[in-house]
Design a protein around this nucleic acid. Structure first.
Length: 230
DNA sequence: GCATTAAGTGGTG
DNA sequence: CACCACTTAATGC
């Protein structure tokens, strides 16, 4: 992680798009921009919360760890989105970790300044609230899936969720490149099982994989086990 | 070259 | 279904 000049352009992130123009100079004065390389940890479980991040470029995974090699990916954060807003709760310790999946640039604001901003900007506060509700819903869906769905369905669900969030690129592949390990962690299973399940899907001609990207070839059949389970 | 990490495979409880 | 052991491929110093 290192400081950098090119961070948020004060136009396109969650904060800036909703910021009242009068506050932009104050944001500019209080923020710092950082660059993280792929694989670098932005914060991890147990760290004290001192500020809040806005992702200006790149991709981040939010995950919980168990021991050394088990993890569950809870959420992905894309450019423009807010990162680390759990710091607004009363418990100022991060409950999750955030790791860069690509080189990223972030805009960082001290928590106290961000709180002041929220107090004078209703729209921002409202959108943040909506955001939190959406994430709560997402989290509850994930809980349900982890408890009730068999692995095969969870892998299918994970692929579907990625499609919903990231859409398709020009070649029709889901527009996110994940390692098999991250895919497994997102589906809530082990690497080997995820690997075998993906091969099943490929053999059944439901999906296609190339360069860590996935193309859905038969969405109906891919989602059949999920529909049945629900 | 050699060390390290990711991908891929079979077997077991 | 997770876990372990192992091979192979890719990457880096």
């Amino acid at each position: 992680m290192k400081k950098c000049k090119s961070g948020c352009d004060l136009k396109s992130c969650f904060l800036c798009t909703m910021c009242i123009p009068d506050w932009l100079p104050a944001i500019d004065a209080n923020r710092q921009n950082f660059l993280y390389n792929k694989g670098e940890v932005i914060f991890k479980e147990g760290d004290p919360v001192q500020g809040i991040f806005f992702l200006y470029s790149g991709l981040v995974k939010i995950h919980k760890q168990w021991g050394s090699d088990r993890e569950l990916i809870v959420h992905f954060v894309r450019k423009g989105e807010i990162l680390g807003h759990r710091g607004l709760g009363k418990n100022l310790i991060y409950p999750v970790s955030a790791t860069a999946l690509e080189p990223i640039t972030v805009c960082y604001l001290p928590l106290s300044f961000f709180k002041s901003t929220l107090k004078v900007n209703n729209e921002l506060l409202f959108q943040l609230m909506v955001n939190c509700f959406d994430e709560l819903e997402e989290s509850e869906k994930k809980m349900r899936d982890l408890v009730h769905l068999p692995v095969k369905s969870r892998v299918a669900q994970a692929i579907f969720t990625l499609k919903e969030k990231f859409g398709y690129n020009e070649e029709g592949f889901i527009d996110i490149a994940l390692s098999r390990h991250d895919l497994a962690s997102f589906a809530g299973t082990t690497y080997e099982t995820a690997f075998r399940t993906l091969n099943e899907f490929i053999n059944d001609d439901l999906i296609e994989m190339s360069n860590k990207k996935i193309r859905i070839k038969n969405e109906k059949e891919l989602l059949t086990p999920i529909m049945n389970a629900h």
